[in-house]
Nucleic acid binder design. Sequence first.
DNA 1: GTCTATAGCTAGATAGAC
DNA 2: GTCTATCTAGCTATAGAC
Lengths: 186, 186
Amino acid sequence: MRPQKVDDQQLMTGLMAVLRSKGFDGASMNDLSEATGLKKASLYHRFPGGKKEIAEAVLAYTGDWSEINIYQVLTDQSKPPLVRLQEVIANIRVLYNDGQAICILRALTMDSSLPLFGNLIEERFKVWIDAFVQVGKDFGFTNEKAQKLALETLVRVQGSLVLSKALDDVAPFQENLIEIERIYTI
Amino acid sequence: MRPQKVDDQQLMTGLMAVLRSKGFDGASMNDLSEATGLKKASLYHRFPGGKKEIAEAVLAYTGDWSEINIYQVLTDQSKPPLVRLQEVIANIRVLYNDGQAICILRALTMDSSLPLFGNLIEERFKVWIDAFVQVGKDFGFTNEKAQKLALETLVRVQGSLVLSKALDDVAPFQENLIEIERIYTI
DNA sequence: GTCTATAGCTAGATAGAC
DNA sequence: GTCTATCTAGCTATAGAC
């Protein structure tokens, strides 16, 4: 077998960058080729299903990332909940490049691409919600209150990302990350 | 002059529906043609600048809508601030079809279309922010607190729309509209 | 496994009849 | 003002050499 020119990790990084920045319709195979350094035909060799399979692979990759950097951290009983929350907030900051990036889940939520990935996207969001519900309960909140806080957290992350993008100003994102810590600690 | 087959109002409604549901890249001239009942060549007659000009016209149209149904309502000194707020929340509910629609500003915020409309989109958001800041001050909040509440309002609207779409559940949107009234009244 | 070359199609956009 | 017909560029996807 001829060696891979680009390893899976690098490949994913490039594919994800294009998909979340341009969305499913806006990202062409040419864009994906240029971003990864692999020619179009090579991309089809790695992903015979084409652009749809690429998007699914990226969703699986970010799903794994969330499992490790969000879910496992927030549910790690060996640390105090506040420490877990602060660690996750730091990870979210990195994930979204301090508020300058677009969430890939949001990018694939247009009505043209949603039918293709709807179930995957819903599951990904529910993992985040689950994780925040659990840390909320470990903070001592009731199940109901923890649910509310988890949803508010996701709303603040997604909403502030939209605003920071539209206003070309990361302040809303940064401020809401701080606010998220506050709503769990007051 | 031959009469228009479709009037400006109907035309805008169809164009907006497609653009906000599919985004700029996902919406083809064929889609726009089918949604409006006008053939592609006729669309180019009405909008010589093509798809870009169509998107700009839709942004102008929704901008006017916001001016009337958000800004003017929230700054109408002849009514108590709570009444204005409730009226605007009702209008927002209609605008986003109870949480099932996508915000056109968000749809055009992908990195592929943002460079084309960035300034327009930023202005539109700032009109909303301005309007909510003013009603906040009329509620008696300080300038700084009113700013904070206005941003939180926009974050809640945009964030809950993303979640409601992704989860295929309008509850986050509906609950956040109620929460918006709460944050101004407690 | 990666590449060049290309097939087949659909996109945005235009010409010209009515 | 609207239409049919069409152009060209770019798209997804494939064939086949190395």
